[in-house]
Design a protein around this nucleic acid. Structure first.
Lengths: 198, 198, 198, 198
DNA sequence: GTTTAACCGAGACGGTACGTCTCGTCTTTCG
DNA sequence: CGAAAGACGAGACGTACCGTCTCGGTTAAAC
């Protein structure tokens, strides 16, 4: 009762096309940013006809998002150092590395840019939900260890940690130094280490 | 000793065209977002010929940025309540209102989107420099009052406050509730109220 | 073993577009002259999108020349009356009719006007080469009949015959009376009927 | 009763502008042909504002024609060798030199091209009338000498002589060799030396 | 193993927008 | 007040890209 009979085999022509297109798409996005991301260019690099891309992915945004998410599937590993501060610092450092890489920049740019396309929005929401859920265990472990009060909202913690990184990259354009990781981890831990009064 | 002889009078044809175009540009951006922002559409609404826009602003991005910055010139007022927490909360609240409005969304989107255009980058940098410098006085006053340690970096404080707002709007797309203002002000104050150890 | 699978069928969409555009192009040229010849106008009349014209013909000149030559393909018939004088008179008469018609005027105007465009020049050269070669047989027959000396250059003969017609139309703008045909045939025959001395 | 008081003196500002514009216009036409002939370009070279040109000459064609005719005012000298054949050969040689020069090419191109502009047409007619009248004396002298029959139409003679030159330059684009002058003179003399029979 | 259905290559086209280039007019400013 | 400087209206040009369509050929799954 193998489902490989239902769907095309992973080595078939379709799969080959799919891979080639994704490779090309990510490469183009990485090299030229979302501006230079053209269906024609992707088709040329993938050695595939433009029409084939439109047939499968419908629109340019669809292709970009699917390719990027496919290639960003390997989530950031969740550190487990035994200390919230160290966990957050390590996680932030990983994120900085990701965001500085072309793939990361391209992913974020694309998710932001196409905020009116429903497909993209759906993918985006799913993406962030997954991220926050996975990373949430860092906070849960800290709660269990008593480092932060019971009831601490993991999403708030993570947002405070990673928002400045995205902010710099997307809004102000400032460089993302790796030392930001430690700095932010410190601040976030201090912000959440005591129970909120109100 | 009037300088009105040097520069075209503010009511001349040029000035009229300029205003009409800016109005139309901001309106289009607000109503349809950066995607629907078309030189032709702006020209139509402004009752001005397309060519005139290209002559003056060169490219679509140039127009968008100049129009938005011109209309965003009125900086956010800097609150002065006597308490850092209240100042930050008030400031964040203002920013939330700004970001939720079409003009704010459009401005941020445009600045982000055209990060490869040198003109836009220059305008962006100047924009943020101005914002941070103005808002910095809130922190300086807090330092003077002894609420936060000597040497506290005002930019860090502000970034930690406003980054989550931009992050939500641009990255995750979550709604920007007005109560976020208080919440974030709390966190930021806690993060900076004690001297950093390292 | 049908080759109809290899090349697009002559009734396919491409062929239809081609015909419609040529019809429209020639009509516009005939009605409004080269000045009013606009890609947009041709597209409108042909019921075809402007872009499609640019795709196929590249530039306005390219379209004009190709359309005109396609429609002028039916060469002028070469008379064979048994007398050089009558042949030349008949040929000149045909040419006068052609040049007086809008198509002829437009063709000549266009070939002259775009003398800097390499494509046009190539088409022009080919056009004249064909014309002179075909018409040359009139002279060759006359040589065979002994009406003109051995070694008479057919091109010179034809040039002397038709140059005044083109000259009137393009340079001085004088009307092209049909009686010119006889007159010129006379002169040309006299000019060539005796062997050149030098 | 000097008219120099009525018309601006030939050294005034108007005259200077006029000269500068004509110089620039002819230079542009000579260098870049009618295609590159732009009011803006002429204005730039002449150091004059575009508007000034439009004020004076109205349209581009007006300027081109006036400038060219002004500069072509020195008519071709009429040879007087005592022999029709030599006169015609000399005249044709002069014409060849004129047509090969940029100014000549430009003049003919412009006169041809703007055949719909009434002003240009008027100038053209006057130009050719003058040319034919002046050159006609060659034929009249030949008639007086008995080289050609009484009643020979000088215009026909000249047309047969010069039409092939214009034809080559404007229609076929063939090079205008100087030896054509002799060749054509021969042919024309032969064509007209005996009385026409009909 | 043959059929058949899905998919791909190739190419043109409609449509929209961009940015450039002229022409010729009109307004504003200055001598 | 009249010319100089400059912006503007008008419209064509040519380019780039998006997404659709048609036709024919290939390849893979299904019988």
């Amino acid at each position: 009762m193998n489902e490989s009979a239902v769907r095309p085999r992973p080595g078939g022509r379709s799969a080959r096309v799919r891979e080639a297109v994704f490779d090309a798409a990510v490469a183009v996005l990485a090299e030229q940013g979302p501006a230079g991301f053209t269906v024609g260019e992707v088709a040329r690099r993938a050695g595939v006809h433009e029409t084939s891309i439109y047939r499968r992915w419908g629109t340019r945004e669809g292709l970009a998002v699917e390719a990027l998410l496919d290639r960003s599937r390997r989530e950031l590993p969740i550190p487990d150092t035994g200390s919230l501060r160290e966990d957050l610092a390590a996680y932030a450092a990983e994120l900085i590395v990701f965001l500085r890489a072309p793939l990361g920049r391209a992913l974020m740019h694309t998710l932001t840019m196409a905020a009116d396309n429903p497909t993209v929005v759906a993918a985006r929401d799913e993406f962030w939900a997954g991220r926050f859920e996975l990373a949430g265990v860092m906070v849960e472990r800290a709660v269990a260890r008593g480092e932060v009060p019971e009831g601490t909202d993991s999403r708030s913690v993570l947002e405070l940690l990673i928002a400045p990184l995205h902010f710099r990259m997307q809004a102000t354009g400032e460089p993302l130094g790796i030392d930001l990781a430690d700095h932010l981890a410190d601040l976030v831990v201090r912000a959440f280490s005591l129970p909120l009064v109100d």
